[in-house]
Design a protein around this nucleic acid. Sequence first.
DNA 1: ATCGCCACCGTTTTT
DNA 2: CGGTGGCGAT
Length: 720
Amino acid sequence: MINESSLSRELNEPQLAAVTTIDGPVLVIAGAGSGKTRTLVYRVAHLINSGVAPESILLLTFTRKAAQEMLWRAGRLINDSCSRVTGGTFHSVANMLLRRYGSALGFAPSFTIIDRADAEGIVNLLKSSLQLTANRKQFPSKRVIVNMLSGSVNKARPLSDLIYEDYAHLSEYAEEIVRLQQHYQSFKVDHGLMDYDDLLVNWRRLLAEVPAVREEIAERYRYLMVDEYQDTNPIQADIVRLAAYRHDNVMVVGDDSQSIYSFRGADFYNIMRFPEIFPGTRIVKLEQNYRSTQPILTLTNDIIRNAVEKYTKTLYTRIEGTRRPQLYAARDEKAEADFVVGRINELRREGVALHDMAVLFRSGFHSFKLELELGSHGIAFEKRGGLKLTESAHMKDVLAVLRLLVNPFDTLSWNRLLLTIDKLGPKTAQKITAILAASSEPVAALAAYPGGKGWQEGVNRLVQLFTRLLEHEPVPAALCDIVLDWYQPVFERLYADDYPKRQKDLEQLRTIIASYDDLQRFIDDTALDPPEADLQAYHEDSEALVLSTIHSAKGLEWQVVFIIGLADGRFPHASAFPGEQWEEERRLLYVAATRARQRLYLSYPRELMGADRRFNRVSMSPFLAELSPASYERIEPLPPGGDWLAVRPMPSTAAAAVKPVRKKKLALEDFSLGCRVNHPFFGTGTVRKLNAPRSLDVAFDRHGLKTLHLDYATLNLVDG
DNA sequence: ATCGCCACCGTTTTT
DNA sequence: CGGTGGCGAT
């Protein structure tokens, strides 16, 4: 039981107002680090405490992990597991409801959720079958097309309008793209596939078009809470409105300055409109920051002060601290990485744990150089927003089989499996899948398909696999074993060079599957919330530095935060042009900087490698340039007394001094199999293979097998 | 006509 | 790393 006095000790005045409001719409406008999560947690606890049934609460958060975490905390507060509260993302809740009520809209509950890669696969298939590329060279890439299709759904605008406004440079292809969209839609319907956008669109349809279901849902979930409301799109706003049409018990929490997802349709005007849509809304503002020290807050307020936005709020804090954020202008990316590594080592000596520090950046590849440096210094790190376990090729092969068990008309998976067969290529695979999709019994149709010379055997094995699976009891773990049994030889042939490494992933998959007793649930979960590739990520106590894109760092905080790559052209992203996109990039920087509790380091390289391996000088990000110089401290390129200079490995300044003493380039003939070499980054290694004309494979003692090009790598022979 | 292999290029952000 | 395009082999 929460008692009222502990409540008022923990929460401030405005939070208390939000928490204890039992009925009616509430809008909480909250700054970064102001205790949004805490407010929601207490609200859940308070509701249950006052006799509201947990089943009637629906908590929508940005990630599924956030929902779990909140419910766990609320459970601790009131001595109840809160496990009967429904919590998750819009997408996962949509999935649950559509499985239950989807028949009212006329679709089978066996649909498969597809991710971005699947969507790109479909677009590719259609692109070639519609012959859209016949006479065109510059037809937009499938990634761009998927973005456009999704954007048009999320922004609730016809595709052709979107093309002429947001993608004007592609307008000459408008007709083809619209045609592609139509085919894409019917392809999904025909094959029982549903993408992320469909989940939301169909949830809204369910509420808008089927009164009985709307009634049932509104009756059941009498309390609705939405976190990160600034990241919802118009569809999601509609869903909230429709789902609460009976009771209006909605509490949304958001910060307009942290809206960073407009590229996928999020519209922070949802926050401004909320009071109009729900008349009688109580508005609560949280302006006290519980996270960062004043100097950090001064800087972040300064960042957002330059926004053209109208809704200004200035955060204040009571947390002591005098250390100003530091700005470091590095000579190049290597020097920037050295700076970060040096500071990290220093901080560790002062007693800061590695997992209390994070490095944030705009785009995934901005951290490549740093990853290399961290590796050679033996600093463990964990990259967020990188490749997920289920995104690697071998994982998808296994998942394709499991997906077909649930939805035999999933053409994408058939296609994928057929391609694993030797001597069977894209053309044949397409021919076969077309027949399978049209038949009522795909497996039987596959067995009956007249085989070709080289690949009949492979098809037979596939048919056998499915016969075995269908005979077996549908216990996920057992099914998985059968699949792995079939997959082993395929896998060893396909990934001959590095299959031992990938095998570990498969074992991990096996353990994950074992914890499920329903195959459908497993498939849904992997599509909606892919497990991380790192085993370490599962252990809270893992001692690893976090590297993350800013987008993936949303809602998190660390004691020490580095933001790297703050150069013109990197941040804001080169293709963001002034206007709303520019503003979003600024908010992105704001989000990044507000992740820091105690210390904040900003850095940028003054030299970057451009398109064709030429170095260009770049200046600092315009967002930094417009800040008041008093809000940060500049560090000179060579800080005095920094003993991290001593730990610095062989400086690549050899390149600067190299002009007069240029060493003779070694030719391939100078190396032989098995000879020992030295490399400035990777250290010593043994030559394993010589490739024509100027590259060779070297097995490094500390970094494994690498292929190097003599034109770029500076290798030296090691004597003895 | 189709498949497999090699070399090269470019990389926003994501539920 | 993943997608693509050219080329030789089947």
